[in-house]
Nucleic acid binder design. Sequence first.
DNA 1: GTCTATACGGTGATAGAC
DNA 2: GTCTATCACCGTATAGAC
Lengths: 205, 205
Amino acid sequence: MTDQQKDTEQMILNAARKVFIEKGLDGARMQEIADEAGINKALLHYYFRSKDKLFGMIFQEELGKFFPKIISVMSSSEYSLEDKIRAFVNDYISIFIKNPFLPSFILRELQRDPENLRQFIVKSGFDVSSVKFVITNLSNQLNMTFDEARHFMINMVSLCIFPFAGRPLIEKILFSEDKSEYNQFLEERKVIVAEYIIRTLKTGK
Amino acid sequence: MTDQQKDTEQMILNAARKVFIEKGLDGARMQEIADEAGINKALLHYYFRSKDKLFGMIFQEELGKFFPKIISVMSSSEYSLEDKIRAFVNDYISIFIKNPFLPSFILRELQRDPENLRQFIVKSGFDVSSVKFVITNLSNQLNMTFDEARHFMINMVSLCIFPFAGRPLIEKILFSEDKSEYNQFLEERKVIVAEYIIRTLKTGK
DNA sequence: GTCTATACGGTGATAGAC
DNA sequence: GTCTATCACCGTATAGAC
């Protein structure tokens, strides 16, 4: 593959990523992706055959980003549980600060087509069983049932993700016009959410 | 307006609600709505002029459901703070159990078009300032800053909503094929989330 | 009010020149 | 590999009969 090919392909992917994440599969237009990439529609099909194929590439990539890579840290024995929670929350929220529309994108497209999810998860290289393993560990450490630990885990993830997925609404209702205020708020959550969760552990369940 | 008119109009709205909520504005087809309502496309336009207009009706309605009506209860002085939290969480989660796709729908469409949000909120009759009032009250009762109380409030809402918006993903990763298991899980959260939040109040911040 | 038929624009995809 | 031109289809919207 020549450099030129690689460049064009990459430019297309970058353009597609931007448009698909903002508009979704249904809302995106091949013309808009072509414009964004500075080429024409025909070339999109030359490289990726169809809109669906191109979308698949992007979705796969983004799903990979979405899955918390640090999940395995949660099951290590090197750090205290509290520090693991701090690391998880901090890293996960940081990912979304870097990719603010990632949560909305993933949630939207999963809703649109939940059927193919399993194969996408497999291809993304995410190890589903590791999450169950983490939860089992949690249930042991915290004297909880598996079900309770699952609630706990999902609570943690909810607190990280929702302020991104619900940003338009929350921001309009509870924040000023100044976007930096909400960004500041998200920044604060790296610490606040972790401490909030840890606090629940200090009282008996 | 005759009964017949009212019936047809209502049938269209019911069909449109179902299709729009599932597919979103971009994914929905007027043909599908017509089929669902047992009529033809032309009649849709006769009653609602355009797809956008029809969508607006539905979105407006659903946004009204989405806003927690019980928010004012939070600022009453009749119940203890803990009981108010229990009531809020219980009622809010109950709404989503009855309307499981409401959160995804609202979040998706807000993401698509955040601009017109303000006017939609106004028309939905939701009083934005009441939320700020509740948060101010919270900050007084809990010896917090406004900013901290806002985090607290958003945490509470996150824990209620996210398990619905993220259901396809969570269910696939952490639950069995049996749908009733996840429904049971959501049912449990009416109590678990409230107690989880209350627990954070019992340790000093 | 409700239907069938159709106009009209847009969109994904392909053909073919260079 | 990249472009222009074009096709075939689909989706919204309207015309007009009943």
